[in-house]
């Protein structure tokens, strides 16, 4: 920098001066923006203060109240607009899950809210809304770091997690966690690549069609074990069969057998019946 500055003073109109000026201007604008713009949440689990509650309520009124009612008491169907369920007592975990995975705000009325990759709120805004909803009535809280810490998970824990998963989750989410169909267009989503926090929150809140698995029936340690099995799956359970075909079971295997297998047989039969040139 000093060298650039001396160069500038030595030759007043150095050809690189414009470039340097633009760069400086960009740094200035960026710095100003960073100072003024909302900061990403650093202390998301900190107790919410009155400002956060107020901000959360404003965000709620602007984005959620149309369906969920002005006091989060649940909406009524007016002029064909959809009714949302009451949010009193759903807890902070529910808000963090629904908004953090992009399921809410609902894009359109359909069988179920899909996971959306583009999240329209910062984590701080989500936390403010969560704090507001949690202030209405007690409900499941956003899980802390202790239950999401996978560093001291043992192979035994992973095995136990897999066992609990097979009994409690696999009937909907598939034995490999790849998801599956429910009735009327609803489905259990694919769990690959889902953050541990959201898996935990889904278990304690029971979003949409999913039932609730509270900590009294599946303990936090067992939930950690399930998440460990789901998120460390690649390391502990790759495909011994060599060709998993998405681990969807008879659907993809049948498709391959019918199209490729029978296709090969048909091709061979046609070739057998052809006259040789």
């Amino acid at each position: 920098m000093t060298r650039t500055l001396t160069a500038l003073s030595a030759r007043r109109r150095h050809p690189l001066a414009v470039v340097v000026l633009i760069a400086l201007a960009l740094v200035l604008v960026g710095g100003l923006y960073a100072a003024v713009a909302p900061r990403p949440a650093e202390a998301s689990t900190a107790t919410a203060d009155a400002d956060d509650l107020q901000a959360g309520k404003e965000l709620f009124l602007a984005n959620c109240a149309t369906c969920h009612g002005l006091d989060a008491q649940g909406g009524e169907i007016v002029d064909g607009s959809g009714a949302g369920p009451s949010l009193i007592g759903v807890g902070a975990a529910s808000v963090d899950f629904q908004v953090g995975t992009g399921r809410m705000p609902l894009q359109m009325s359909s069988a179920q809210a899909p996971e959306v990759p583009k999240i329209r709120f910062s984590q701080e805004q989500i936390d403010q809304m969560a704090a507001y909803i949690a202030s209405l009535a007690p409900g499941p809280a956003i899980p802390g770091e202790d239950v999401l810490d996978m560093s001291d998970v043992t192979a035994q824990d992973v095995s136990r997690g897999a066992q609990i998963f097979r009994t409690n989750c696999a009937m909907c989410h598939n034995f490999a966690g790849k998801g599956g169909a429910l009735t009327g267009g609803k489905y259990a989503p694919d769990l690959t690549g889902v953050e541990g926090k959201y898996i935990y929150e889904a278990m304690v809140t029971g979003p949409q069609s999913m039932p609730v698995f509270p900590n009294s029936t599946i303990s936090p340690e067992d939930k950690t074990a399930i998440i460990a099995w789901l998120t460390q799956e690649e390391e502990f359970r790759p495909e011994p069969g060599g060709l998993p075909l998405g681990s969807l079971g008879p659907v993809s295997e049948g498709l391959l057998a019918w199209i490729a297998g029978i296709g090969l047989l048909v091709g061979c039969s046609v070739w057998l019946g052809m006259k040789s040139s």
Partner: peptide, 21 residues
């Protein structure tokens, strides 16, 4: 008792929407 982890179930622990195997 809970499947597969075992342990008796207290009725008051179950919230609406809960499922236990």
């Amino acid at each position: 008792v809970k499947d597969p982890t075992g342990g008796r179930i207290r009725a008051a622990d179950l919230t609406y929407g809960t499922v236990v195997h």
